[in-house]
Amino acid sequence: MLELKKRLARILAEKSYREGDFTLASGKKSDYYFDCRQTALHPEGCWLIGQLFFDLLKDKDVHAVGGMTLGADPLVSSVAVISHEQGKPLPALIVRKQAKGHGTGQYVEGLANVSPGQSVYMLEDVVTTGGSVITAIERIEAAGLTVTGVCCVLDRQEGGREALKEKGYDLISIFTRKELVELSNA
């Protein structure tokens, strides 16, 4: 898996990681910006993310993966495909930012593929404060499912892990900033 992480780190460094002066969605200022969508929408990047997330989840008691649209859409889709190939299918759930304005008016898409009470791991591209993934968790749980943890591509190590822990959720990350920078140059 180390070779896959190195390959992913190189693609992330090329397509998704920028240094400079940025304001994040959380409102915090940062000396770098991480736009994982650029890599998650790249053919090899998407495949690598799916492989690495699946590897983190394959031995866990999990029935599905979910995440907040738009950032998590390619993440949950890649894991669903890889999980099917590996013989341990994990359906994908997508959490809307706003409830659907027509039809059933639901926040969560993909519920026909899971049963009430089943366990879900949330997937996130980047965790800073944990705010958006906590909102997604609340919506998944309101739909009758049980969230058992969170996986992210990048943990910015800026309080998100602690905020999730406070709510009872563990965070597993593929990279921290330091690991990403080191492996992209390996």
Rank of each mutant, 00 (worst) to 15 (best):
L154H: 06
I137Q: 07
T146R: 15
V150L: 08
S184H: 11
G110F: 07
C46G: 07
R156P: 12
V127A: 03
K28D: 11
P91H: 00
E141A: 01
D155I: 10
G105P: 09
K165N: 15
N185M: 12
G71C: 01
D31V: 08
C152G: 12
E158L: 13
V114E: 02
L180Y: 08
R10W: 04
A13R: 14
A25G: 05
D61K: 08
R7F: 08
V79R: 00
Q51R: 15
Q86H: 07
L93R: 00
T135H: 14
H102S: 02
T128F: 13
Q157T: 07
P89L: 00
G103S: 11
Y107F: 14
G71I: 00
G103Y: 05
A64M: 09
G20R: 11
G168E: 09
D59C: 02
L52G: 04
P43M: 07
L183G: 06
K5S: 11
V95K: 00
A186S: 14
S132F: 02
H102Q: 07
P74I: 07
R139C: 05
S26G: 10
T128A: 05
R177I: 13
I82K: 12
C36G: 15
S132K: 05
A80L: 01
C151R: 01
L48M: 14
F175K: 06
F22E: 01
H63A: 11
N185Q: 15
R96G: 02
G130P: 12
A25E: 15
P116V: 01
G159W: 15
A143H: 09
T128G: 07
K29E: 11
G27K: 07
H102P: 02
R96E: 04
G160K: 12
G105E: 07
A9S: 12
E85G: 00
L154Y: 06
E44T: 14
D61W: 03
V133P: 10
V120W: 04
D73Q: 02
Y33A: 08
W47R: 15
E179F: 00
V62G: 01
R96T: 05
V76F: 01
S132R: 08
T176W: 11
L52A: 05
G131W: 10
V153Q: 04
K165F: 12
E158S: 14
I11W: 10
E44N: 11
H42K: 01
Q38D: 09
Y107N: 02
Q118F: 03
E3G: 02
Y107S: 04
L24E: 11
R156K: 15
L8K: 09
R10F: 03
R37Y: 04
G130T: 11
S77C: 11
D61T: 02
L90Q: 03
I140W: 02
E14C: 05
V95W: 03
A64Y: 08
A9T: 11
C152P: 14
Y169M: 10
A136L: 09
R139G: 05
